[in-house]
Design a protein around this nucleic acid. Structure first.
Lengths: 342, 342
DNA sequence: CTGAAAGCGCTTACAG
DNA sequence: CTGAAAGCGCTTACAG
């Protein structure tokens, strides 16, 4: 069977020094004679020794495991995998590895994942939260893990959060459509249980109000969790009397569904559309899709930086960091009522 | 500061039993009196105790940590994040958590990641390899980690691999284009250093040969690592005298770049295109994109199943599992030479 | 059914 | 500069 991996003891024996000395060399602890260092390093090479990180973590005073956990709704959603990428960039610079898991929007599963991750001694946690209450994190925080929320703030607990200006993004989209002459602007949104969905809806309403346009429930469809649901909702909405001349889609999958619906109906040159979140191939579609784009890699990078700042001992009160969005004009948002191009 | 997390000793003290008994209860080891079980469970609840997984791993005989490591080229590439999703699905059913990291196509980094993961005691590894040689894994394999390769086979080492039929996918695309009447079929491919790129090119050549079409270097562009490079290559290729009437794009980012190029040139209704790998929004583009689609979630699921079978003790010789692809006819691949639709 | 003791691979005072 | 010893939180024989 497997010939046991070499341990520090094996290295010590081969180098003819004590375990302590090997530990000092491995950790670069300085106070070791040059000759001993060489003998130890020779033994390490000869045996192919590598430190057992888990054992090291167990014993060392700071308990740092050089790993962090990330909990998303769905790791295969490009929005989240890009956030992961951003976190990884800053983690890598510190030799930190990342666990990544999907909550599938199940609060119970989110909690289980957090506990599983903490049981594996992650130094910190980055969470795109779904649970309505994160008080269960209190114990972990006291245990020393750092936690940063991303995309959505925590509920019932104080912690750092890295967000975009959700109402602002929706309002910018409405402003843009109003400027193009639209008065009947439909809103296709995700489930209201989600913070981002609620906040974007709020921005939509507030911007309408500022423009003196009455809010009309008949133009709003919520609870769209995937492209299929969005597609169906768009078809239904556009089939009604007094249907909207423009659509605001609140999220990338919702945008994809609405674009499909417009293509299917042959009304993609007639109905204006502005999405929140960029979508892949947005500039290969006809018309090209105007969006308020987030930079998910930047979101992840900032979340990672905030997390590591905490791990480095920063102890300011919890803060909210807002990562800027960008308005990307491409064509679909510049269609005037009736189908003319600006 | 942080009030130390409760340990098994704290539970034992509160429950008035020994450490061993607590361990038996926590591990469901059976042979404990019902009354003791209750007292221990009460203490666990009262203290909010949760087992330290890392310490448990260190001591237990099988050394299982209930975590696996995944190494991809780039975690934010949807192809890979979908594979991750598939792995996660089977891992979740076993309470296993996944580390995920990007090699960025750097063999050195791939090796470092593997070592970092093994130092953190992963039970197994799933790798989409970039290194030209994986002999460095030998030591880890002997140390007991299971390794499964996905998307590309290992080099210089025997291990399980989960792949698609790459030459077959490319050949199917060529067959389809030839059937539509094309004789000059361009090939846009990724770097030849990649197994998949080489194998798809081979399938392209073999299919041309079967159809009696001479291979022409002037129609082939390789080394396209991203959409931008592919875009530029397509523009350049189509600008030449005797340019192709159809394109075979060997990978999702390459397809995206080529689609952009065709749109930009206004030749998307004239030049046929078949891609390998599906792309997002493929059916929202005009014409809709015909592809040989892989199922990356299935790739990940199968890789996970093979990995866990090994961890369960299966010791057949290393095997290759081929996950089927699907030919998805959507429009772009059915354009005839000269631009007519089939 | 239960407990005392050893030990997983490492780090960290403590002496020298 | 170096080593012997204790101990991180747990599991696992071994006795009883």
């Amino acid at each position: 069977m497997a010939p046991r991996r070499p341990t520090m003891n094996d290295v010590a024996a081969l180098a003819g020094v004590s375990l302590s000395t090997v530990s000092r060399v491995v950790n670069g602890d300085g106070a070791v004679r040059a000759g001993s260092v060489e003998r130890v390093q020779g033994a390490i090479r000869a045996l192919g020794y590598r430190r057992d990180h888990a054992a090291s973590t167990l014993r060392r005073s700071d308990r740092a495991s050089a790993s962090v956990g990330i909990v998303f709704e769905d790791v295969s959603n490009p929005f989240f995998s890009s956030i992961h990428r951003g976190v990884e960039e800053v983690a890598r610079a510190r030799g930190v590895l990342t666990f990544v898991a999907s909550s599938d929007e199940d609060p119970d599963r989110e909690r289980e994942l957090v506990h599983g991750l903490c049981a594996r001694h992650v130094d910190g946690l980055i969470i795109a939260p779904v649970a309505p209450n994160h008080a269960f994190l209190e114990a972990e925080l006291e245990g020393g893990v750092a936690v940063v929320f991303v995309d959505r703030p925590p509920a019932a607990i104080e912690a750092d959060a890295v967000l975009i200006d959700n109402p602002g993004a929706a309002a910018a989209a409405v402003d843009h459509l109003v400027a193009a002459g639209h008065g009947r602007i439909g809103f296709l949104g995700d489930r209201e249980a989600l913070f981002t969905a609620r906040e974007r809806l709020r921005g939509y309403r507030e911007s309408l109000a500022r423009h003196g346009i009455p809010y009309d429930d008949a133009l709003v469809r919520l609870g769209l969790a995937d492209a299929g649901a969005s597609n169906a909702a768009a078809v239904e909405l556009l089939d009604r009397p007094d249907s909207p001349t423009a659509l605001l889609t609140s999220q990338n999958l919702v945008t994809v569904g609405a674009v499909h619906a417009l293509q299917k109906l042959g009304r993609h040159h007639e109905i204006a559309l502005v999405g929140i979140d960029d979508v892949p191939m947005a500039d290969a579609v006809e018309p090209r899709i105007t969006v308020v784009s987030q930079d998910p890699v930047a979101l992840g990078r900032v979340a990672g930086e905030v997390l590591f700042a905490r791990l480095d001992g920063e102890d300011d009160p919890p803060r909210r960091v807002i990562v800027p969005t960008e308005f990307v004009v491409r064509g679909s948002g510049e269609i005037r009522p009736g189908g003319a191009r600006e």
